[in-house]
């Protein structure tokens, strides 16, 4: 069971990487079909047979066919990715992915929580606010920080969108 799972997992990771890395969109789509099929294999190992088969029917058999239709209809060729701006953006993208992976690995090591588990509520004398504060800043610190980043992103987005056009509207098509 475990070697089979490791095989499917390796195939899933490798095909997902190939989806992201390959230049030709048709090949990316085909690799995605393969990754969906390996995911269906993992579902079968987890005793979710109905979901495994539905995954193949819906994702690999219908959604990816839609993707391939559109790619063939638009007659897309290899993606051309040159230029310094693109390279910089790509570097930032990989960095963000690496940071996310590192965060995930850290959480995995610590059992998905920072701080000890609170088995029972703190005594009534300290009150609800103190109790939640205790839990929020120890065990659930990571989601708390991530939420603050989420709010920051929302703020920046709102400011940019609400600022309006700085230059006059020249392009009208």
């Amino acid at each position: 069971m475990i070697p089979l799972f490791l095989g499917f997992a390796a195939m899933l990771v490798i095909t997902s990487l190939m989806v992201v890395l390959h230049k030709n969109p048709v090949t990316s789509a085909l690799f995605l079909v393969l990754s969906f099929s390996s995911l269906a294999g993992i579902y079968l190992l987890l005793h979710a047979e109905f979901l495994g088969m539905v995954q193949i029917v819906v994702y690999a058999g219908a959604i990816m066919v839609l993707f391939l239709f559109v790619i063939m209809y638009l007659n897309l060729q290899h993606d051309v990715e040159t230029g310094v701006q693109i390279a910089v953006r790509r570097g930032i993208g990989w960095l963000a992915g690496a940071v996310l992976l590192l965060a995930g690995a850290t959480l995995l090591r610590r059992g998905w929580a920072l701080g000890p588990a609170n088995e029972m509520l703190p005594d009534e004398a300290s009150g609800n606010v103190a109790a939640i504060g205790k839990v929020l800043y120890s065990r659930y610190l990571f989601p708390f920080e991530i939420t603050s980043i989420l709010l920051l992103v929302a703020m920046i987005g709102v400011i940019i969108i609400a600022k309006g056009r700085a230059r006059s509207a020249g392009e009208t098509t």
Binding site: E49, M53, G61, V65
Partner: peptide, 20 residues
């Protein structure tokens, strides 16, 4: 125990050979 669904899944996959 999902034999019929396997048949439907495989017939969905049969689209690929001809299209590609």
């Amino acid at each position: 125990n999902v034999g019929l669904l396997l048949f439907l899944a495989m017939s969905s996959l049969g689209v690929y050979g001809i299209t590609l």
